[in-house]
Design a protein around this nucleic acid. Structure first.
Lengths: 260, 260
DNA sequence: CAATGTGTAAAGCTC
DNA sequence: GAGCTTTGCACATTG
Protein backbone atom coordinates (compact mmCIF):
# COMPACT_ATOMS: atom_id res chain seq x y z
CA UNK A 1 0.00 0.00 0.00
CA UNK A 2 2.92 2.32 0.60
CA UNK A 3 4.26 3.13 -2.82
CA UNK A 4 7.49 5.03 -2.90
CA UNK A 5 9.33 6.27 -5.95
CA UNK A 6 12.80 7.71 -5.56
CA UNK A 7 14.02 10.06 -8.27
CA UNK A 8 11.40 8.63 -10.60
CA UNK A 9 10.78 9.28 -14.27
CA UNK A 10 7.86 11.58 -14.91
CA UNK A 11 5.84 8.74 -16.35
CA UNK A 12 6.28 6.74 -13.19
CA UNK A 13 4.98 9.61 -11.11
CA UNK A 14 1.87 9.66 -13.17
CA UNK A 15 0.97 6.26 -11.74
CA UNK A 16 0.22 7.98 -8.50
CA UNK A 17 -2.75 9.66 -10.11
CA UNK A 18 -4.99 6.83 -9.10
CA UNK A 19 -4.14 7.29 -5.47
CA UNK A 20 -5.22 10.93 -5.52
CA UNK A 21 -8.35 11.45 -3.50
CA UNK A 22 -8.09 8.03 -1.91
CA UNK A 23 -4.71 7.96 -0.23
CA UNK A 24 -2.35 10.67 0.89
CA UNK A 25 0.13 11.57 -1.85
CA UNK A 26 3.45 13.33 -1.38
CA UNK A 27 5.68 14.82 -4.06
CA UNK A 28 8.98 16.52 -3.44
CA UNK A 29 11.32 18.16 -5.90
CA UNK A 30 12.30 21.26 -7.76
CA UNK A 31 9.29 23.08 -9.05
CA UNK A 32 7.68 26.32 -10.04
CA UNK A 33 4.14 27.14 -9.06
CA UNK A 34 1.32 29.35 -10.19
CA UNK A 35 -1.74 30.26 -8.26
CA UNK A 36 -4.79 31.95 -9.61
CA UNK A 37 -8.01 32.73 -7.83
CA UNK A 38 -8.89 35.50 -5.42
CA UNK A 39 -5.36 36.71 -5.97
CA UNK A 40 -2.55 35.48 -8.14
CA UNK A 41 1.01 34.46 -7.57
CA UNK A 42 3.99 32.99 -9.31
CA UNK A 43 6.71 31.15 -7.44
CA UNK A 44 10.11 30.62 -9.00
CA UNK A 45 12.01 27.33 -9.06
CA UNK A 46 12.81 25.93 -5.63
CA UNK A 47 12.72 22.73 -3.64
CA UNK A 48 9.18 22.16 -2.45
CA UNK A 49 7.00 19.47 -0.96
CA UNK A 50 3.47 18.88 -2.16
CA UNK A 51 0.83 17.04 -0.14
CA UNK A 52 -2.52 15.87 -1.43
CA UNK A 53 -4.88 14.62 1.25
CA UNK A 54 -7.86 12.36 0.61
CA UNK A 55 -10.30 15.06 1.71
CA UNK A 56 -9.08 17.14 -1.21
CA UNK A 57 -6.77 19.43 0.69
CA UNK A 58 -3.73 20.42 -1.31
CA UNK A 59 -0.66 22.01 0.27
CA UNK A 60 2.59 23.10 -1.34
CA UNK A 61 5.42 23.85 1.07
CA UNK A 62 8.74 25.48 0.56
CA UNK A 63 10.99 22.66 1.79
CA UNK A 64 13.49 24.92 3.50
CA UNK A 65 11.49 27.38 5.55
CA UNK A 66 8.23 28.77 6.81
CA UNK A 67 5.33 27.27 8.64
CA UNK A 68 2.91 28.59 6.08
CA UNK A 69 2.55 26.90 2.71
CA UNK A 70 3.64 28.57 -0.51
CA UNK A 71 0.32 27.69 -2.09
CA UNK A 72 -2.69 25.62 -1.17
CA UNK A 73 -6.26 24.66 -1.85
CA UNK A 74 -8.47 23.83 1.10
CA UNK A 75 -11.06 21.08 0.73
CA UNK A 76 -13.13 20.64 -1.31
CA UNK A 77 -10.57 20.45 -4.06
CA UNK A 78 -9.31 17.97 -6.58
CA UNK A 79 -5.85 17.22 -7.89
CA UNK A 80 -4.45 15.64 -10.99
CA UNK A 81 -1.02 14.65 -12.20
CA UNK A 82 0.02 14.98 -15.83
CA UNK A 83 3.26 14.78 -17.68
CA UNK A 84 4.08 17.55 -20.10
CA UNK A 85 7.35 18.10 -21.90
CA UNK A 86 8.97 15.76 -19.43
CA UNK A 87 7.69 17.83 -16.51
CA UNK A 88 5.42 16.44 -13.83
CA UNK A 89 2.51 18.84 -13.63
CA UNK A 90 0.44 18.72 -10.47
CA UNK A 91 -2.77 20.63 -10.81
CA UNK A 92 -5.14 21.40 -7.97
CA UNK A 93 -8.54 22.98 -8.37
CA UNK A 94 -11.01 24.07 -5.74
CA UNK A 95 -14.47 22.71 -6.33
CA UNK A 96 -16.42 25.41 -4.56
CA UNK A 97 -14.76 28.50 -5.91
CA UNK A 98 -12.70 29.05 -9.04
CA UNK A 99 -9.18 28.79 -7.69
CA UNK A 100 -6.34 26.80 -9.03
CA UNK A 101 -2.74 25.99 -8.29
CA UNK A 102 -0.47 24.47 -10.89
CA UNK A 103 2.91 23.06 -9.94
CA UNK A 104 5.54 22.26 -12.54
CA UNK A 105 8.11 19.80 -11.23
CA UNK A 106 11.32 20.00 -13.19
CA UNK A 107 12.77 17.34 -11.02
CA UNK A 108 11.18 14.92 -8.59
CA UNK A 109 13.20 13.48 -5.74
CA UNK A 110 10.40 11.65 -4.05
CA UNK A 111 6.90 10.64 -4.98
CA UNK A 112 4.78 8.43 -2.81
CA UNK A 113 1.33 7.42 -1.69
CA UNK A 114 0.63 6.28 1.82
CA UNK A 115 -1.71 3.52 2.94
CA UNK A 116 -4.97 4.85 4.18
CA UNK A 117 -5.87 1.96 6.43
CA UNK A 118 -3.59 3.38 9.05
CA UNK A 119 -5.90 6.29 9.46
CA UNK A 120 -8.09 5.61 12.43
CA UNK A 121 -11.05 7.76 13.05
CA UNK A 122 -9.88 8.46 16.53
CA UNK A 123 -7.74 11.22 15.35
CA UNK A 124 -9.29 13.91 17.40
CA UNK A 125 -7.04 16.32 19.17
CA UNK A 126 -7.97 17.29 22.65
CA UNK A 127 -6.96 20.59 23.99
CA UNK A 128 -6.42 20.99 27.69
CA UNK A 129 -5.90 24.52 28.71
CA UNK A 130 -5.74 25.50 32.28
CA UNK A 131 -6.58 23.33 35.19
CA UNK A 132 -10.03 22.80 36.61
CA UNK A 133 -8.74 24.50 39.68
CA UNK A 134 -8.34 27.67 37.64
CA UNK A 135 -11.89 27.42 36.41
CA UNK A 136 -13.06 27.22 39.99
CA UNK A 137 -11.02 30.27 40.87
CA UNK A 138 -12.51 32.22 38.00
CA UNK A 139 -16.04 31.34 39.04
CA UNK A 140 -15.30 32.01 42.69
CA UNK A 141 -13.92 35.44 41.92
CA UNK A 142 -16.54 36.35 39.38
CA UNK A 143 -19.66 34.23 39.78
CA UNK A 144 -21.56 36.11 37.12
CA UNK A 145 -19.61 34.24 34.47
CA UNK A 146 -22.10 31.47 35.20
CA UNK A 147 -25.08 33.78 35.15
CA UNK A 148 -26.09 37.09 36.74
CA UNK A 149 -26.98 36.56 40.36
CA UNK A 150 -25.24 33.26 40.81
CA UNK A 151 -23.89 32.76 44.33
CA UNK A 152 -21.38 29.97 44.84
CA UNK A 153 -21.59 28.32 48.24
CA UNK A 154 -19.11 25.49 48.42
CA UNK A 155 -16.75 23.37 46.43
CA UNK A 156 -16.07 19.67 46.36
CA UNK A 157 -19.39 18.83 47.93
CA UNK A 158 -20.08 15.21 48.68
CA UNK A 159 -23.38 13.68 47.78
CA UNK A 160 -24.80 10.23 47.22
CA UNK A 161 -23.45 10.14 43.67
CA UNK A 162 -19.97 11.42 44.39
CA UNK A 163 -18.27 14.78 44.83
CA UNK A 164 -19.75 17.78 43.03
CA UNK A 165 -17.25 20.38 41.83
CA UNK A 166 -19.23 23.38 43.01
CA UNK A 167 -22.70 24.22 44.31
CA UNK A 168 -24.59 27.46 44.92
CA UNK A 169 -27.82 29.33 44.35
CA UNK A 170 -29.29 31.26 41.49
CA UNK A 171 -30.95 34.65 41.66
CA UNK A 172 -34.24 33.09 42.65
CA UNK A 173 -32.72 30.98 45.40
CA UNK A 174 -32.73 27.72 43.47
CA UNK A 175 -29.98 25.25 44.22
CA UNK A 176 -27.40 24.79 41.45
CA UNK A 177 -24.88 22.02 40.91
CA UNK A 178 -21.92 22.78 38.68
CA UNK A 179 -19.86 20.23 36.84
CA UNK A 180 -16.61 21.68 35.51
CA UNK A 181 -14.72 20.39 32.52
CA UNK A 182 -11.63 22.11 31.29
CA UNK A 183 -11.87 20.58 27.85
CA UNK A 184 -14.62 19.59 25.46
CA UNK A 185 -17.17 17.68 27.50
CA UNK A 186 -18.45 14.30 26.41
CA UNK A 187 -21.53 12.33 27.37
CA UNK A 188 -19.87 11.13 30.53
CA UNK A 189 -19.87 14.66 31.87
CA UNK A 190 -23.57 14.98 31.17
CA UNK A 191 -24.51 11.75 32.86
CA UNK A 192 -22.26 12.48 35.81
CA UNK A 193 -23.94 15.84 36.28
CA UNK A 194 -27.31 14.15 36.01
CA UNK A 195 -26.42 11.76 38.79
CA UNK A 196 -25.36 14.61 41.04
CA UNK A 197 -28.52 16.60 40.33
CA UNK A 198 -30.72 13.63 41.15
CA UNK A 199 -28.79 12.92 44.31
CA UNK A 200 -29.20 16.49 45.52
CA UNK A 201 -32.88 16.49 44.61
CA UNK A 202 -33.40 13.43 46.76
CA UNK A 203 -31.30 14.79 49.54
CA UNK A 204 -32.78 18.28 49.68
CA UNK A 205 -36.27 17.70 48.33
CA UNK A 206 -36.21 20.90 46.36
CA UNK A 207 -35.71 22.16 42.86
CA UNK A 208 -32.14 21.63 41.66
CA UNK A 209 -30.56 22.99 38.50
CA UNK A 210 -27.54 21.34 36.92
CA UNK A 211 -25.06 23.31 34.86
CA UNK A 212 -22.18 21.83 32.92
CA UNK A 213 -19.37 24.36 32.66
CA UNK A 214 -17.01 23.64 29.78
CA UNK A 215 -15.44 25.36 26.80
CA UNK A 216 -17.41 23.15 24.49
CA UNK A 217 -19.50 19.98 24.42
CA UNK A 218 -19.83 17.17 21.95
CA UNK A 219 -23.06 16.79 20.02
CA UNK A 220 -24.04 13.72 21.96
CA UNK A 221 -23.35 15.49 25.21
CA UNK A 222 -25.52 18.40 24.16
CA UNK A 223 -28.40 16.13 23.29
CA UNK A 224 -28.10 14.31 26.58
CA UNK A 225 -28.10 17.56 28.54
CA UNK A 226 -31.25 18.57 26.75
CA UNK A 227 -32.89 15.25 27.44
CA UNK A 228 -32.12 15.50 31.15
CA UNK A 229 -33.14 19.14 31.43
CA UNK A 230 -29.60 20.20 32.25
CA UNK A 231 -27.79 23.30 31.12
CA UNK A 232 -24.46 24.12 29.57
CA UNK A 233 -22.50 27.24 30.33
CA UNK A 234 -19.66 27.86 27.94
CA UNK A 235 -16.58 28.97 29.80
CA UNK A 236 -13.44 29.62 27.85
CA UNK A 237 -10.29 28.66 29.60
CA UNK A 238 -7.71 31.37 29.91
CA UNK A 239 -4.54 30.89 27.92
CA UNK A 240 -1.60 29.67 29.89
CA UNK A 241 0.75 32.37 30.86
CA UNK A 242 4.22 31.85 31.99
CA UNK A 243 5.32 34.11 34.73
CA UNK A 244 8.31 33.89 36.90
CA UNK A 245 10.79 31.92 34.96
CA UNK A 246 10.05 29.05 32.76
CA UNK A 247 7.06 27.15 33.55
CA UNK A 248 6.94 23.44 33.39
CA UNK A 249 3.92 22.04 31.72
CA UNK A 250 3.02 18.54 32.62
CA UNK A 251 1.01 16.88 29.99
CA UNK A 252 -1.40 14.99 32.12
CA UNK A 253 -3.93 12.33 31.85
CA UNK A 254 -5.80 11.60 28.72
CA UNK A 255 -9.39 12.47 28.86
CA UNK A 256 -11.54 9.74 30.26
CA UNK A 257 -13.46 7.81 27.72
CA UNK A 258 -16.69 9.40 26.79
CA UNK A 259 -17.15 6.26 24.92
CA UNK A 260 -20.79 6.09 24.11
CA UNK B 1 21.64 13.20 -1.11
CA UNK B 2 18.08 12.00 -1.24
CA UNK B 3 17.80 9.32 1.39
CA UNK B 4 14.58 7.38 1.44
CA UNK B 5 13.62 4.64 3.85
CA UNK B 6 10.49 2.63 3.22
CA UNK B 7 8.92 0.91 6.21
CA UNK B 8 12.22 1.21 8.04
CA UNK B 9 13.27 -0.13 11.40
CA UNK B 10 13.29 2.49 14.12
CA UNK B 11 17.07 2.37 14.32
CA UNK B 12 17.31 3.14 10.64
CA UNK B 13 15.13 6.17 11.06
CA UNK B 14 17.46 7.46 13.70
CA UNK B 15 20.10 7.90 11.01
CA UNK B 16 18.11 10.81 9.72
CA UNK B 17 18.96 12.74 12.85
CA UNK B 18 22.04 14.15 11.26
CA UNK B 19 20.04 15.63 8.42
CA UNK B 20 17.83 17.58 10.84
CA UNK B 21 18.47 21.28 10.60
CA UNK B 22 20.44 20.90 7.42
CA UNK B 23 18.13 19.18 4.99
CA UNK B 24 14.37 18.83 4.86
CA UNK B 25 13.22 15.67 6.64
CA UNK B 26 9.89 13.92 6.16
CA UNK B 27 8.42 11.17 8.31
CA UNK B 28 5.09 9.50 7.70
CA UNK B 29 3.37 6.83 9.74
CA UNK B 30 1.04 5.99 12.56
CA UNK B 31 1.71 8.16 15.54
CA UNK B 32 0.42 9.86 18.62
CA UNK B 33 1.38 13.38 19.49
CA UNK B 34 1.58 15.59 22.52
CA UNK B 35 1.91 19.32 22.50
CA UNK B 36 2.68 21.51 25.44
CA UNK B 37 3.23 25.22 25.52
CA UNK B 38 0.75 28.06 25.37
CA UNK B 39 -1.88 25.36 25.53
CA UNK B 40 -1.73 21.59 25.64
CA UNK B 41 -3.06 18.83 23.49
CA UNK B 42 -2.98 15.13 22.98
CA UNK B 43 -3.64 13.51 19.63
CA UNK B 44 -4.58 9.85 19.41
CA UNK B 45 -3.07 7.35 17.02
CA UNK B 46 -3.54 8.23 13.36
CA UNK B 47 -1.67 8.42 10.09
CA UNK B 48 0.31 11.62 10.00
CA UNK B 49 3.08 13.30 8.08
CA UNK B 50 5.86 15.18 9.83
CA UNK B 51 8.05 17.77 8.14
CA UNK B 52 11.19 19.29 9.56
CA UNK B 53 12.57 22.21 7.59
CA UNK B 54 16.15 23.43 7.79
CA UNK B 55 15.07 26.77 9.23
CA UNK B 56 13.73 24.88 12.23
CA UNK B 57 10.08 24.85 11.29
CA UNK B 58 8.31 21.71 12.37
CA UNK B 59 4.90 20.70 11.04
CA UNK B 60 2.82 17.63 11.80
CA UNK B 61 -0.10 17.01 9.46
CA UNK B 62 -2.99 14.68 9.68
CA UNK B 63 -2.46 12.74 6.46
CA UNK B 64 -6.15 12.47 5.60
CA UNK B 65 -7.61 15.91 6.04
CA UNK B 66 -7.33 19.57 6.90
CA UNK B 67 -5.16 22.35 5.62
CA UNK B 68 -3.99 23.21 9.10
CA UNK B 69 -1.40 21.07 10.84
CA UNK B 70 -2.24 18.97 13.87
CA UNK B 71 0.76 20.39 15.67
CA UNK B 72 3.67 22.60 14.77
CA UNK B 73 6.59 24.67 15.95
CA UNK B 74 7.48 27.76 13.97
CA UNK B 75 11.15 28.69 13.59
CA UNK B 76 13.28 29.05 15.58
CA UNK B 77 12.90 25.48 16.76
CA UNK B 78 14.96 22.35 16.88
CA UNK B 79 14.08 18.71 16.35
CA UNK B 80 15.56 15.42 17.38
CA UNK B 81 14.85 11.78 16.65
CA UNK B 82 15.25 9.08 19.28
CA UNK B 83 14.23 5.47 19.54
CA UNK B 84 12.44 4.37 22.65
CA UNK B 85 10.85 1.02 23.26
CA UNK B 86 10.96 0.39 19.55
CA UNK B 87 9.10 3.66 18.89
CA UNK B 88 10.51 6.46 16.80
CA UNK B 89 10.19 9.55 18.92
CA UNK B 90 10.35 12.86 17.09
CA UNK B 91 10.74 15.76 19.46
CA UNK B 92 10.49 19.40 18.49
CA UNK B 93 11.23 22.32 20.77
CA UNK B 94 10.89 26.03 20.15
CA UNK B 95 14.03 27.94 21.01
CA UNK B 96 12.42 31.29 21.78
CA UNK B 97 9.51 30.22 23.94
CA UNK B 98 8.94 27.08 26.00
CA UNK B 99 6.86 25.00 23.66
CA UNK B 100 7.31 21.43 22.67
CA UNK B 101 5.75 18.80 20.48
CA UNK B 102 6.55 15.12 20.90
CA UNK B 103 5.48 12.60 18.30
CA UNK B 104 5.53 8.87 18.97
CA UNK B 105 5.61 6.86 15.78
CA UNK B 106 4.33 3.34 16.34
CA UNK B 107 4.90 2.61 12.75
CA UNK B 108 6.82 4.44 10.05
CA UNK B 109 5.88 4.02 6.40
CA UNK B 110 8.27 6.55 5.02
CA UNK B 111 11.27 8.42 6.32
CA UNK B 112 13.41 10.57 4.13
CA UNK B 113 15.69 13.54 3.83
CA UNK B 114 15.81 15.70 0.74
CA UNK B 115 18.86 17.25 -0.88
CA UNK B 116 19.21 20.86 -0.01
CA UNK B 117 21.25 21.91 -3.00
CA UNK B 118 18.11 21.96 -5.03
CA UNK B 119 16.85 24.81 -2.93
CA UNK B 120 17.66 28.00 -4.73
CA UNK B 121 17.26 31.21 -2.91
CA UNK B 122 15.07 32.55 -5.64
CA UNK B 123 12.05 31.18 -4.03
CA UNK B 124 10.17 34.40 -3.83
CA UNK B 125 6.49 34.35 -4.47
CA UNK B 126 5.04 37.28 -6.32
CA UNK B 127 1.52 38.23 -5.55
CA UNK B 128 -0.62 40.10 -7.98
CA UNK B 129 -3.89 41.18 -6.56
CA UNK B 130 -6.70 41.17 -8.96
CA UNK B 131 -8.71 43.72 -7.12
CA UNK B 132 -6.06 46.39 -7.46
CA UNK B 133 -6.03 45.79 -11.17
CA UNK B 134 -9.79 46.07 -11.01
CA UNK B 135 -9.54 49.36 -9.19
CA UNK B 136 -7.40 50.73 -11.96
CA UNK B 137 -9.84 49.52 -14.57
CA UNK B 138 -12.74 51.08 -12.73
CA UNK B 139 -10.98 54.43 -12.53
CA UNK B 140 -9.89 54.21 -16.13
CA UNK B 141 -13.41 53.50 -17.33
CA UNK B 142 -15.13 55.91 -15.01
CA UNK B 143 -12.72 58.57 -13.77
CA UNK B 144 -15.39 60.48 -11.92
CA UNK B 145 -15.30 57.90 -9.13
CA UNK B 146 -12.24 59.85 -8.01
CA UNK B 147 -13.89 63.20 -8.43
CA UNK B 148 -15.88 65.03 -11.11
CA UNK B 149 -13.60 66.21 -13.85
CA UNK B 150 -10.71 63.89 -13.08
CA UNK B 151 -8.77 62.90 -16.20
CA UNK B 152 -6.41 59.95 -15.85
CA UNK B 153 -3.34 60.20 -18.04
CA UNK B 154 -1.12 57.24 -17.40
CA UNK B 155 -0.53 54.25 -15.15
CA UNK B 156 2.60 52.86 -13.58
CA UNK B 157 4.45 56.11 -13.92
CA UNK B 158 8.05 56.15 -12.82
CA UNK B 159 9.35 58.96 -10.71
CA UNK B 160 12.25 59.61 -8.42
CA UNK B 161 10.50 57.87 -5.56
CA UNK B 162 9.31 54.80 -7.41
CA UNK B 163 6.38 53.88 -9.63
CA UNK B 164 3.10 55.69 -9.12
CA UNK B 165 -0.04 53.67 -9.73
CA UNK B 166 -1.82 56.32 -11.73
CA UNK B 167 -1.51 60.00 -12.52
CA UNK B 168 -3.82 62.56 -14.14
CA UNK B 169 -5.30 66.02 -13.87
CA UNK B 170 -8.17 67.49 -11.97
CA UNK B 171 -10.83 69.81 -13.32
CA UNK B 172 -8.59 72.81 -12.82
CA UNK B 173 -5.64 71.22 -14.56
CA UNK B 174 -3.74 70.33 -11.41
CA UNK B 175 -1.55 67.26 -11.48
CA UNK B 176 -2.81 64.37 -9.38
CA UNK B 177 -0.95 61.29 -8.15
CA UNK B 178 -3.06 58.31 -7.16
CA UNK B 179 -1.95 55.59 -4.81
CA UNK B 180 -4.22 52.56 -4.96
CA UNK B 181 -4.71 50.07 -2.16
CA UNK B 182 -6.97 47.10 -2.49
CA UNK B 183 -7.40 46.79 1.25
CA UNK B 184 -7.37 49.01 4.29
CA UNK B 185 -4.41 51.34 3.89
CA UNK B 186 -1.84 51.77 6.64
CA UNK B 187 0.70 54.47 7.31
CA UNK B 188 3.06 53.03 4.75
CA UNK B 189 0.58 53.89 2.00
CA UNK B 190 0.37 57.48 3.19
CA UNK B 191 4.13 57.98 3.36
CA UNK B 192 4.60 56.29 0.01
CA UNK B 193 2.09 58.63 -1.58
CA UNK B 194 3.82 61.54 0.08
CA UNK B 195 7.16 60.52 -1.47
CA UNK B 196 5.59 60.34 -4.91
CA UNK B 197 3.90 63.69 -4.54
CA UNK B 198 7.13 65.34 -3.48
CA UNK B 199 9.03 63.68 -6.30
CA UNK B 200 6.53 64.93 -8.86
CA UNK B 201 6.57 68.41 -7.35
CA UNK B 202 10.32 68.53 -7.75
CA UNK B 203 10.18 67.09 -11.21
CA UNK B 204 7.41 69.24 -12.57
CA UNK B 205 7.71 72.37 -10.47
CA UNK B 206 3.97 72.71 -10.20
CA UNK B 207 1.18 72.05 -7.78
CA UNK B 208 0.62 68.33 -7.20
CA UNK B 209 -2.26 66.72 -5.37
CA UNK B 210 -1.95 63.26 -3.85
CA UNK B 211 -4.95 61.02 -3.42
CA UNK B 212 -4.93 57.72 -1.66
CA UNK B 213 -7.58 55.44 -3.14
CA UNK B 214 -8.57 52.67 -0.78
CA UNK B 215 -11.66 51.09 0.73
CA UNK B 216 -10.58 52.33 4.15
CA UNK B 217 -7.61 53.71 6.03
CA UNK B 218 -6.25 53.15 9.51
CA UNK B 219 -6.42 55.95 12.02
CA UNK B 220 -2.71 56.51 11.87
CA UNK B 221 -2.84 56.63 8.11
CA UNK B 222 -5.62 59.19 8.21
CA UNK B 223 -3.66 61.42 10.56
CA UNK B 224 -0.59 61.17 8.38
CA UNK B 225 -2.56 62.09 5.26
CA UNK B 226 -3.88 65.12 7.04
CA UNK B 227 -0.44 66.12 8.21
CA UNK B 228 0.97 65.88 4.68
CA UNK B 229 -1.96 67.62 3.05
CA UNK B 230 -2.97 64.51 1.15
CA UNK B 231 -6.44 63.25 0.40
CA UNK B 232 -8.30 60.00 0.69
CA UNK B 233 -10.87 58.78 -1.78
CA UNK B 234 -12.87 55.82 -0.60
CA UNK B 235 -13.19 53.21 -3.30
CA UNK B 236 -14.45 49.71 -2.75
CA UNK B 237 -12.72 47.08 -4.82
CA UNK B 238 -15.33 45.34 -6.92
CA UNK B 239 -16.07 41.76 -6.19
CA UNK B 240 -14.43 39.38 -8.58
CA UNK B 241 -16.62 38.58 -11.45
CA UNK B 242 -16.54 35.37 -13.20
CA UNK B 243 -15.80 34.85 -16.76
CA UNK B 244 -17.60 31.62 -17.33
CA UNK B 245 -21.19 32.13 -16.30
CA UNK B 246 -21.98 31.20 -12.79
CA UNK B 247 -21.47 33.73 -10.13
CA UNK B 248 -18.66 33.54 -7.80
CA UNK B 249 -17.54 34.25 -4.37
CA UNK B 250 -16.76 37.76 -3.45
CA UNK B 251 -13.66 38.57 -1.57
CA UNK B 252 -15.00 39.26 1.86
CA UNK B 253 -13.58 42.54 2.76
CA UNK B 254 -14.79 43.39 6.16
CA UNK B 255 -14.32 47.06 6.50
CA UNK B 256 -15.16 48.62 9.71
CA UNK B 257 -17.63 51.41 9.65
CA UNK B 258 -14.77 53.92 9.69
CA UNK B 259 -16.76 55.93 12.09
CA UNK B 260 -15.46 59.45 11.77
C1' DC C 1 11.61 45.34 21.47
C1' DA C 2 6.28 45.53 21.48
C1' DA C 3 2.08 46.90 19.14
C1' DT C 4 -0.55 46.65 15.14
C1' DG C 5 -2.47 45.01 10.82
C1' DT C 6 -2.82 41.50 7.18
C1' DG C 7 -3.94 36.90 5.10
C1' DT C 8 -5.68 33.43 -1.20
C1' DA C 9 -6.05 33.43 6.21
C1' DA C 10 -8.54 28.50 7.99
C1' DA C 11 -11.75 26.53 11.00
C1' DG C 12 -15.33 26.40 14.31
C1' DC C 13 -19.67 27.88 15.92
C1' DT C 14 -24.28 30.58 15.95
C1' DC C 15 -28.11 31.88 13.63
C1' DG D 1 -26.24 28.44 4.08
C1' DA D 2 -24.26 33.36 5.69
C1' DG D 3 -22.01 35.72 9.33
C1' DC D 4 -19.07 36.11 13.26
C1' DT D 5 -15.30 34.76 16.32
C1' DT D 6 -11.29 32.35 17.36
C1' DT D 7 -6.69 30.55 16.33
C1' DG D 8 -1.23 27.31 20.33
C1' DC D 9 -3.13 31.69 14.42
C1' DA D 10 1.71 33.04 11.49
C1' DC D 11 3.87 36.79 9.64
C1' DA D 12 5.12 41.43 8.11
C1' DT D 13 5.36 46.22 9.25
C1' DT D 14 5.54 50.00 12.14
C1' DG D 15 6.62 52.74 16.18
Amino acid sequence: MTKVLVEPDPEEVKQLSEALGRQPVILAGICEAEYCGRAESVAGPALRIAMCKPDGTFILHNAMEKREPTNWNPAPSRQSIEVRDGCVVLRSRRLDVPEEVVVYFHRVFLACSLPKEGAKSEDSVFYLFKSEEDMKRVIRENPSVIEPGFRPVSEEVECEAGVADMVGYDEKGRFIVLELKRARAGVSAASQLRRYVEAFREERCEEVRGILVAPSVTDKCRRLLEKYGLEWKKLEPEPLREDGGKKQCTLTEFLDGEGD
